[in-house]
Design a protein around this nucleic acid. Structure first.
Lengths: 222, 222, 222, 222
DNA sequence: GATGAATGAGCTTTCATTCAT
DNA sequence: GATGAATGAAAGCTCATTCAT
């Protein structure tokens, strides 16, 4: 990939983002050196600075742009859905599909938050919170309407997101299953997981879950 | 100067492991410097080498010891369970409980596999495969006995593991929920997720899933 | 900060080689630190790596380039000489002269072979063998034509080379003797040493010296 | 060799000297680590300090003891010889024989002088000077009596010593030649080298060689 | 006399970043 | 916009040496 010697202009920036995405995905932000990145792009490491301001900024922009796009597309995917189950199915289908085509962006946005400097971290976490809230609200609505049953909405939100995002660790194009099959498999799991039924045993929260606590607790960086 | 009075060998090793666990959990393996680690332990960085052979070896042993312990305890937790639902509940309860007390080990064992050198990586992935296989077999049995319904056992295995392991990214002792509540919340989600019901739409695998492909595919490092 | 004005690439490389030569000559390869070398050149130690790839590579190239040059010039010096005595005189004069102007290179090429990694060592020893073979052949020819008398050609070859190369341990420009006097002194010693005469006492080799054994024995790294 | 676990007392000291000799011979003083040495002896590196005071002191004593022994034995070997040729033959035979049985000591005493700290260096060089002077005096006497002819006594002294000492770089027991043959080969070379004959071309010293200049010049460390 | 664990300095090498050209 | 050469800090690791046990 890349390495088109002499590439310049916006093409170079694009190559940097692409290569950066791949290298961070494979080795992690801290383990990726700008020399590696530059070599991948086919330029000297000093030349990177004609396009990026710092390594940190590159990471930040990759993540921020990704989450913004994710949010934009999620809202489009949810449009027109009214009933909680439909919303949840749409959410799941969108999430899985998106993760299959952008697995590197998604993976990095989840795994490299700790590599962000505080200011950047805050900004990204706020955006991520918006995404999580979409799901939390779907679940809350479903519970309120009696369509869903969960022990705890907050836990269910995190669990379902983890379930769906786990995809990025094993999915690869051209595998055994079609994309549709993978989407279907996840829809089944997610929709069933919150379906009403015999709850194993009744557990109590130590404290009631206030609306804000549900999403803004942030006890530590995660 | 020689050794500070009162600091002993095994105690130092234990301090190194503990601090290493914390630092890798917080910053990642690549971003943790041995100087940091040594400072945390209260010795010079060169002194670490009286206890570890390399940074890589430290990571490897932390992960390997963790997975071995995990496997050992899992098998004990599953003892005596016969029906798939009971097994799955036991698996879930054990997994969640264990992850709450050893969240750093668990997190690292999942996130730092890519930091392992090939030989070490192979060894850990083999161990991890054993763990995954326990769950895959529970699901298979449940499906065969008509107790569970999943679109694809392999996908369900990965998804459920991801769901459960996601816990490590947000759990912290002293939070809003009791441990029991957290376990219960996950039991509900997991048991429901594979419960028979209306599968959204029928999807087909491109290829049938052979037994071995299910667990040994390893298309790329994950 | 960036580069100091006026310091250029090739000039820096040349300064590194020159300073490296001197430091290795004075302290030995293992005892020379790259910090020392960099300080000598007037740059930071990390900056060395814009010019060399490793410390080992620097040593290797210094030695290899030297031996290649030595061989090239030797062959020129021997051109036109027919009789063994003339060849031997030419060899001696060339060797001594060259060693007086390049004593550091010569010394290092002899004393630091053990510091070379196996692959580099093999390459250099092969080149050195070519040089030794020139002298061995001159002696053989002289013995065959009855002009020289030696107890053993192989021993004589090594001994004469050692005699000549010893120069590097004491020669310094501006000493008591002119270069010409030093050359003459060595010519006398070398030519006399193989002159026919009364051999002290007749000694026997345990085994006859095969042609190949003479030059390829290499019992151990030397 | 060595590694007799639990060896103690004078036996350990002897093992240290033996192993040190070998390691310095093979890798050089700077490149030999005390950990290596200790491992060879079968103890921990800290334990070395029950026997040596510093690494430098070990080197110094190895060299000093060697040269003292060399001088002692040389004087015994020269006893009873009157005529310069007989003395030179005896010197050569002794030197070669001794170098064959103690090649490591000899090699180190020549190659590691630069690794000695100034004070130690001075002491060793003084001893070495005594050894060189024996040969210089033999040559001077021979020249004075008309038995030898050399262009310059000083140069001849250094050259003959280099010739003889070169042995340590290639000799190994069990090689093609008997010890006697090797001695004979060197006797022929050395005695012939100073034999009167047609001096190639008459060269002049820039300055006459004063008695003291011949041996105490020491223009630089060599 | 040996050990094991420590020190503090030092090693070679890599890093992100800068900037004259 | 790219290069090549620089910086200064820091990396993982090794070193000779010390000393309580």
């Amino acid at each position: 990939m890349a390495r088109t010697i002499g590439s310049h202009g916006p093409k170079t920036m694009e190559a940097i983002r692409k290569a950066g995405l791949r290298l961070i995905f494979e080795h992690g932000y801290a383990a990726m050196s700008l020399r590696q990145l530059a070599a991948e792009v086919g330029i000297q490491s000093g030349s990177l600075y004609n396009h990026i301001s710092t390594k940190q900024e590159l990471l930040f922009e990759l993540i921020r742009d990704h989450i913004n796009e994710l949010l934009r597309q999620l809202d489009r995917a949810l449009q027109g859905q009214e009933r909680p189950a439909d919303k949840l199915r749409a959410f799941t289908a969108f999430h899985v599909s998106y993760h299959m085509t952008r697995k590197r962006e998604v993976f990095i946005a989840n795994s490299e938050l700790r590599s962000l400097e505080p200011k950047n971290y805050e900004e990204i976490v706020a955006l991520r919170g918006a995404y999580e809230r979409r799901l939390a609200e779907i679940l809350s609505q479903g519970v309120a309407e009696g369509e869903f049953e969960v022990v705890d909405v907050q836990v269910a939100t995190f669990a379902i997101l983890a379930l769906l995002t786990g995809l990025t660790t094993w999915y690869r194009p051209g595998g055994r299953l079609t994309k549709e099959a993978i989407v279907a498999a996840h829809e089944k799991l997610v929709l069933s997981s919150v379906a009403p039924g015999t709850t194993p045993n009744q557990a109590q929260a130590k404290r009631p879950l206030s609306r804000s606590a549900a999403t803004s607790a942030k006890p530590e960086r995660r």
